[in-house]
Design a protein around this nucleic acid. Sequence first.
DNA 1: GTCTATACCTCGATAGAC
DNA 2: GTCTATCGAGGTATAGAC
Lengths: 197, 197
Amino acid sequence: MTAGPAEDTRTRLLQTALRLFTEHGVEGTSLQMIADALGITKAAVYYHFKTKAEITEAVAEPGIRDLDELVRRAATQKRRGAQVDLLLEGFVDLVIRHRSLVALFSSDPGIARAIEKSAHGGAEGFGQAMLGILSGPDPDTTARVNALVTLTGIAMAGGSPDLARVDDEKLRTELLDVGRRLLGRPRRRSLAPVSTL
Amino acid sequence: MTAGPAEDTRTRLLQTALRLFTEHGVEGTSLQMIADALGITKAAVYYHFKTKAEITEAVAEPGIRDLDELVRRAATQKRRGAQVDLLLEGFVDLVIRHRSLVALFSSDPGIARAIEKSAHGGAEGFGQAMLGILSGPDPDTTARVNALVTLTGIAMAGGSPDLARVDDEKLRTELLDVGRRLLGRPRRRSLAPVSTL
DNA sequence: GTCTATACCTCGATAGAC
DNA sequence: GTCTATCGAGGTATAGAC
């Protein structure tokens, strides 16, 4: 965890891997491609990571951690309205913070495999947990569709190249707005956190 | 185009390929996997298709054709409201008709590559054309976000395993409803096509 | 027209020199 | 920490038997 010359290559490697993953997919990205992009050899990559799976896990890890914490925090809220609001805001923040990574999560089977071993039983687990909160207990089809469109829409739109040049603050406001509309939540007046509904 | 024993293997091959593509991604699916699932050999696969790219193109082709026709038809509408309504309804129908294929389109880089050579300059071209219609001329960020969330949300939700057991008619109604709400279109009373707004 | 056998390449991964 | 060399497995693609 200490910053140093060793971490430098490791960090560049993960950044490069994420970029290539979004361009070609996880399975479509070879270690050779990563090595070439960094100007090193495949064997040098293996000095930093034992396997390719270890790379994908390391790429996904920051997102997983935030997602995990978000789901836990949302679940502790007593009132369902508060659960939904917290989850929605937290998810939008997470999408903003990680942008392209979240889009990868939603779609790439390679990432799904990598997350499978983590808490909650994998990406599917996180998705189900979030859907459960957003769609409520014993949801009808309408509620399930709304929750699904909200989560996937926010994730894909947030990670889309079409919005890459929109600054964080603006995108955050827009995604929150569309999410509230989809879930039938009242629109907030200010951006400051509120303790009561 | 004639139905026969030769076409049978070809059809089964494409169905199997689509299923495997959705499970493992395009790049994550090998010809060996397709051949094994069909109980034939890799070389037998090459009798039906010259390259793997040709398979992915053939898998995507029905969706491409429908998408192409939809965008053309929408563009011929005079009033913008009619363009949006026609595109939204057509897109929902298309998602229902192809379900998992559309979800693949939205996400898999392998599919994107395969479509790249087709009309409109590839998947990106279709996406941009649809976004252009839904978000209107000279759109602000809000309109662009709404259009993006609508398209990606409907596509991903429609292709999601979570909704696989919802029947077509019900899912169609729900997706149309959420799309209209997102785009601020008036809700229809009946499912029958209307000629005036 | 359909599949077997096989060529050839790149994959992920390892060993050991520097 | 990065390199060269190499492995076995599995990838795409082809030649030719039936």
